[in-house]
Simulated scan of single mutants.
Amino acid sequence: MTGTSLAEVMGELRELEDPQTRAVNEKHGDDHAVNLSKLRAFAKRLGTRQELAGELWDTADSAARLLAILICRPRSFERGDLDTMVRQAGTPKVRDWLVNYVVKKSPHCETLRVAWLADPDPVVASAGWMLTTARVVKRPEGLDLAGLLGVIEAEMKRAPERLQWAMNECLGNIGIEHAEHRDRVIDIGERLEVLKDYPTPPKCTSPFVPIWITEVVSREKRK
């Protein structure tokens, strides 16, 4: 499909739209109507297409941007490009895919992580916390975990929803991955009570940090 034009790609995306998919996504703050498995299959047929990815992103259409993320070359973006894109992302799914599939693979990942953590825009700051969680789990060397816990303790309770979720994710992973901080993490979770009453489906783990950590650590000990 090396000769596929933007118009042709957008036409196929429209054909893949499904009203039921849109209705489900809208409940989570997303607005695309394309099944993600079908979108991934489409991206596989297209292959890596950096120029087309840029054109798709510029349409501002969420499905097109998700496709752009799947066919781009993550290391081709400059730091400023990625900073602009995370501010343009618009919906949670586009932002999450951008951070996980592009920014994390970029040579600018660490400088963006530090900059975004301090950004006054809570949506951008949430991206910084997502990148920080990845470091907590995979590459914690050099991170001030105690300092991060201090920030979470002071700010998570009153943070906007998306930022609160990202900070809570980081808090939980510090407790799971770093036993020396576990008691403090659980204490913070118990006092702040963030997501304590979040409805959790059967057989799923609660995002409330004290319950989440206890369940995950217990499972690990049983292995």
Rank of each mutant, 00 (worst) to 15 (best):
S126E: 06
L145K: 07
A134V: 13
E155D: 10
G142M: 12
L143I: 09
R158Y: 08
K138L: 13
E141L: 10
R162V: 14
K157M: 01
L148Y: 04
M156T: 01
P140C: 12
I152V: 10
D144P: 05
G147L: 06
G147W: 10
L149Y: 02
V124L: 05
M156I: 12
A146N: 13
P122L: 02
L148W: 03
R135P: 04
R158F: 01
P120I: 03
G128L: 03
W129M: 05
T133F: 09
K138V: 11
M130N: 12
I152Y: 03
G128K: 02
K138N: 15
K138C: 06
L149S: 07
D121K: 01
A134R: 15
K157W: 00
E155Y: 00
A146Y: 09
D121P: 04
E161N: 13
P120C: 00
V124S: 01
A125W: 02
G147A: 12
K157S: 04
A154F: 00
S126I: 05
V136E: 03
G147Y: 13
R162T: 14
R158L: 00
V136H: 11
A125T: 02
S126Y: 07
E161L: 15
D121S: 04
M130G: 10
V124H: 10
V136K: 06
T133M: 14
E141H: 15
R158Q: 14
R162F: 01
P120W: 00
G128D: 09
A146W: 11
W129L: 05
P120G: 01
A125V: 02
L148D: 04
W129R: 06
P160K: 07
E141W: 07
V137Q: 13
I152F: 02
M156W: 05
P122E: 03
R162P: 09
L143Q: 08
P122V: 08
K157C: 02
L145M: 13
E155G: 02
M130A: 14
K157I: 01
V123E: 11
G142F: 13
R139N: 14
D119L: 00
D144E: 11
V151H: 08
E161M: 12
G150W: 03
T132D: 03
A127F: 01
D119V: 01
L143D: 07
W129I: 07
P122T: 04
E141I: 12
M130C: 08
R158G: 04
A125N: 00
L131N: 08
V136I: 14
P122D: 01
L148M: 11
L143H: 10
M156N: 11
S126H: 07
E153F: 03
A154H: 06
P140D: 11
M130H: 11
A159H: 07
A146C: 11
E153L: 00
E155P: 00
T132V: 09
T133S: 05
G147F: 04
A146D: 15
E153N: 09
E141N: 14
V136T: 10
V124C: 00
R158D: 13
D121V: 06
T133D: 09
G128T: 04
L143M: 14
G150S: 07
V137E: 14
R135M: 12
L131S: 09
M130D: 11
D144H: 03
A134M: 10
E161T: 10
L149K: 06
M156K: 00
A134W: 15
R135C: 12
A146R: 15
G147S: 11
A154C: 01
D121N: 10
T133N: 10
R139K: 15
R158T: 12
D119T: 00
G150V: 02
P140Y: 09
